[in-house]
Design a protein around this nucleic acid. Structure first.
Lengths: 345, 345
DNA sequence: CTGAAAGCGCTTACAG
DNA sequence: CTGAAAGCGCTTACAG
């Protein structure tokens, strides 16, 4: 039999309420009884049942993290662990645990969200998505359950989110190429369903315009997901397009690696013949030959900030009685261009 | 007010017990009442409170996953998400959620384990570790709480684990080099605290011996962790050692990438001058120049199998009354040598 | 097949 | 500063 609060109470000669207050570090408790109770908890190796506590207090101290389905494969992305580490670190600091979903379909995702939210398992949810019109977002809003999105949602109001400024990322990257004299710059990896790529693409276009360079649709390569099929995208590109880019901006480093491999195999040297850059600054970017120019998105901070926003909202709920207008935050985590060999020196 | 089982019961004209049985899909329930109750649950948009259910049933349907501290940085490793995906997929199939720890110190790890196990939050725990003498393992054994280790533990008995055969991985990799005529093969990344590297190293030594090649300590490069500092390891190696290896086996692909970068910068071409191979077959291995020979460890399967073992043990506990000797499983997930350009053709 | 009752292990006004 | 009591929302023998 596991030792409960009653066992402690009996042995300490106090009531269960008092033991509970000691555990919760309640202020109005004499330090005498406090120490007595704590001593006995040590002796009996007592550990509170978190489930019972959750039920009684209506707070599980668990944050749910919803990860886009396997189909989108972002799970595999190198920046994901960093994000998770940021989430975990801040959550731990505040005494929260993190419950991870890993679903394969949108229905499973909805199931999970309902379970997390309605089932009382979590106090709030962090949603990793930058999907246009994500159904989970609508669901969460409907339930008015605390949540934060990592990756800007299209839903502009009544949503907390944290993201990089992807427009600027696209803009700066493009300007970097322009400053090195490039004018035929391809954009690799536009996926209309994913705002992150759309935003970067808009930044790209704006930079071109600002420098008087016409946007050439021939230089835009769409892709289904933000995956690692840069090799095949380039193959298709060179087969079907007549333009010869001198620079390629890939929406992701993995895309860039694949693209470079293709270029190498077809006698094009990077950066001599074509300059290439990616985004996300994966660890391998520095070791690649040539080392890859990329953008550090500070995934750790994205995760950390998301937890802070979420906990602010979760706790806001407890300021009962005080009427207030609910506010929503958008937080931009700065990104940083890391220039390496793949765009020349 | 959230709708509870009582609300459903009242509206359906049955007792809460009956509603509970409908939810649990209890066999002895008339399909008439079953349908009536389900209809009302739909109407009222009822979702069971998982916390209450957990408390009453003494099972949270949550699996804890303990990840080695940030200090060890395995969180950042590309194979980790795959592992997690394997865990998540099988867990979901069985109706379990996964709770992730992300701790920074060994004390935090112990805290977390106690919270997960004693606090009743999880039904069982998966421990990612291949640390020699992991204190968490001892803790879990002491509590006799269901757990499975991914990564072989030194603790040979009373432990379930799933792992690759790292001895064979080291052996096969080495034999691959020997067959291509190499005799001076360096081993990069031996970390005495991590069994995974020790096992691979033993396989390496055995292969050399079996082919009559003496083991040369000069060719062994130790490292603190399984990280990405291959570049610096090689720098130190060439500065302090007199031997010139013609082949390098790195304990990890990231190590290999760093090593290759160093070699390139110092006029050594891969594989012409030095052949290099890694382990883990990270996505970038195929895109690297040259593409990297590696070993696919099937991380997804490692995770999937770990959950299966764990759930077997968790459920075994419920076969109460039936006396049985508890058994422990060791499962080996096959690994596969992937030959690419970095070791020649 | 169904209900009444006890119980899971805590928390938290309410009273003193 | 502390206790008695009610309650959190379920499950599950036990009885019928």
């Amino acid at each position: 039999m596991r030792v409960t609060i009653k066992d402690i109470a009996k042995k300490a000669g106090v009531s269960p309420s008092t033991v509970s207050r000691v555990i919760a570090n309640h202020p109005r408790i004499s330090s005498a009884t406090k120490h007595k109770v704590m001593k006995i908890m040590k002796e009996l190796d007592y550990h509170p049942n978190m489930i019972a506590r959750s039920l009684a207090s209506k707070s599980s101290k668990i944050i749910g993290v919803i990860i886009p389905g396997t189909a989108e494969r972002s799970f595999e992305h190198p920046f994901f662990p960093e994000l998770l580490r940021g989430i975990g670190t801040v959550a731990y600091q505040h005494g929260y645990n993190i419950l991870i979903s890993s679903v394969t379909s949108l229905e499973e995702e909805k199931d999970t969200i309902i379970q997390f939210a309605r089932g009382g398992i979590t106090d709030g949810v962090i949603l990793l998505t930058s999907r246009v019109r994500d159904p989970s977002v609508a669901e969460l809003i409907k339930m008015s359950f605390p949540f934060v999105i990592i990756g800007r949602s299209e839903q502009e109001s009544r949503v907390n989110w944290v993201d990089n400024d992807n427009f600027s990322i696209g803009y700066e990257l493009t300007e970097h190429f322009i400053k090195r004299g490039h004018r035929r710059i391809a954009f690799l990896g536009l996926s209309p369903d994913f705002l992150v790529t759309v935003d970067r693409f808009n930044g790209y276009k704006q930079a071109l315009r600002d420098h008087g360079i016409p946007v050439d649709e021939e230089l835009v390569v769409e892709s289904q997901f933000v995956t690692d099929d840069g090799y095949h995208l380039m193959k298709t590109f060179y087969r079907h397009r007549s333009v010869q880019p001198t620079g390629i901006i890939a929406c992701d480093d993995l895309l860039a690696f694949g693209a470079i491999k293709y270029l190498n195999e077809h006698g094009l040297e990077v950066p001599r013949d074509v300059a290439v850059a990616g985004v996300n600054n994966v660890p391998q970017a520095a070791y690649f030959s040539p080392s890859l120019t990329s953008v550090e998105i500070n995934a750790f901070s994205l995760g950390a900030k998301a937890v802070e926003l979420l906990l602010a909202e979760v706790n806001e709920e407890y300021t009962a009685g005080v009427p207030h207008t609910r506010s929503y935050s958008r937080t931009i985590i700065p990104a940083e261009l890391i220039v390496r060999d793949s765009t020349g020196r």
